[in-house]
């Protein structure tokens, strides 16, 4: 069995499951920032490793530089998540959380890591719980993947451990703010068998 065996029914179920995970992540962000979070329609697709750069470039509104947080998740379901912030993201977050300029300089990275951790945790736990109730994921500590870097340079020195992966894309915006964030979740081929089994159980129960 491999990733190319996902059927249209699998994708349909997965999109709805991501929708629920995204809702939980959006609620976590809304609670943290005490503001209304706009959610976009989630997307799921299969990509080859060489498509990584174009995938990231596609989601970035500002063609300039981006900052991204990386966090791995593992258990039966495993993979990596990238939380991508637009240029204004950090300053907007700091402003909403009441940081002053001095605080922003000191804790830029810490803030982005904390918010990324909350978003990935809520989203992935929501997805894992829907796939298999009781299934608990473990997470690596979030790390700064890149800071103010053009998307086309992101993966130039980055070797992936997979040839192809399922890519789950979710996006958040804040109303009347310049903040936007995307979560890209990569589930490599090694994770797909478990995913297909879990999705099949969903489909059988319909």
């Amino acid at each position: 069995m491999n990733a190319r065996m996902l059927s249209e029914d699998h994708y349909e179920v997965l999109r709805e499951i991501i929708n629920i995970g995204m809702g939980q992540a959006g609620a976590a962000l809304a609670k943290l920032l005490d503001t209304f979070v706009e959610l976009a329609v989630p997307n799921v697709t299969m990509i080859d490793a060489h498509q990584l750069t174009s995938v990231v470039a596609e989601v970035v509104d500002d063609p300039g530089e981006i900052t991204a947080i990386r966090q791995a998740f593992y258990n039966q379901l495993h993979g990596e998540a990238l939380v991508i912030y637009n240029r204004q993201g950090c300053r907007e977050l700091a402003d909403l959380l009441g940081y002053d300029d001095e605080d922003i300089d000191r804790s830029d990275q810490e803030l982005l890591l904390d918010v990324g951790n909350i978003l990935v945790g809520a989203c992935m736990n929501g997805i894992a719980e829907q796939l298999n109730p009781g299934h608990e994921l473990s997470f690596s500590p979030p790390s700064l993947f890149c800071e103010n870097m053009p998307p086309d340079r992101l993966f130039s020195h980055h070797e992936t451990s997979w040839n192809y992966a399922l890519l789950l894309k979710v996006a958040f915006r804040l109303e009347q703010r310049a903040f936007s964030s995307h979560i890209l979740i990569f589930m490599p081929e090694q994770s797909i068998d478990y995913l297909i089994q879990a999705l099949d159980k969903w489909i059988e129960a319909l």
């Binding site: 929708n19 809702g23 939980q24 959006g26 609620a27 809304a30 609670k31 503001t35 209304f36």
Partner: peptide
């Protein structure tokens, strides 16, 4: 009927006249 469970989403739909907010699924 939504997965968007943030309280402000619920407030907003009630302001727009919705009768109920049902969490998926």
């Amino acid at each position: 009927v939504s997965a968007d469970i943030q309280p402000k989403a619920q407030e907003r739909v009630f302001e727009l006249g919705a009768k109920a907010f049902i969490r998926k699924n």
